[in-house]
């Protein structure tokens, strides 16, 4: 993301001339609770992926056609815990970020 030093360099009209530049802003720093997934318990139903308001859960469709939950993108996860709430098998737990300070 360019940081503009002069009005002469900026695109006019307040236009943001590139898409998805917000990715350069890490909302992960807002987080005080961290979601942790127990992959043994996870049934890869992808409800967490569907609900995550921050698009901070990765997923894919495997070659066998089954879906797979690939974990969290902590650059963006704000720690709201919606994933844990919607998980039908309670495979996600929310832990205080303080536990990860080392």
């Amino acid at each position: 993301m360019p940081k503009y030093d002069s009005w002469k360099e900026m695109p006019i009209a307040g236009v943001i001339d590139k898409p998805a530049t917000a990715r350069e802003y890490n909302t992960g720093t807002w987080r005080i609770m961290r979601p942790i997934v127990d992959k043994d318990a996870c049934i890869n139903c992808m409800q967490c992926w569907l609900y995550c308001p921050d698009m901070a859960i990765n997923g894919k469709v495997k070659e066998d056609g089954k879906t797979e939950m690939l974990g969290f993108d902590y650059n963006y996860c704000k720690g709201c815990g919606t994933c844990a709430e919607v998980c039908p098998v309670n495979a996600i737990t929310m832990k205080p970020e303080t536990e990860f300070l080392k």
Partner: peptide, 9 residues
């Protein structure tokens, strides 16, 4: 995409 600044949850 990611990086929006709406409240958590």
């Amino acid at each position: 995409t990611q990086g929006h600044r709406l409240c958590p949850g």
